[in-house]
């Protein structure tokens, strides 16, 4: 149990750093989505099921959808060339 806890926590930090240094915005958003999902799992471990449900629905669901839509609107999805100067 403790090992899982530590793995999840380290995963969180790795995700956070990866988001900051990733060059591609789409990758950043996907990593952030994973981050939210892991956060939901951690909240189950911390005995807060309310938070876990909300985070899974909002953080991983709605927020990521908003990010994807924003990226689509500015043409970052599907136009790889433009990404280079927008890191």
């Amino acid at each position: 149990m403790i090992i899982i806890e530590w793995l999840l926590l380290i995963f969180l930090i790795v995700c956070a750093i990866a988001v900051s240094i990733s060059k591609n915005l789409l990758n950043s958003v996907i990593i952030f989505m994973n981050y939210s999902l892991v956060m939901a799992v951690i909240w189950v471990l911390l005995r807060s099921p309310d938070l876990a449900i909300t985070e899974a629905a909002v953080g991983a669901g709605v927020t990521s959808v908003l990010f994807f839509l924003a990226l689509r609107k500015i043409g970052q999805i599907g136009h790889e060339k433009e990404n280079q100067n927008k890191n």
Partner: peptide
Amino acid sequence: QRNLIKKIIGLNIMDTAVYLFLAAKGF
């Protein structure tokens, strides 16, 4: 960060970090 989308992701990370802190305090 200079890109706004990344700034906003950073905002989300910051907020969830605070919530993790708070939730851990309740455990």
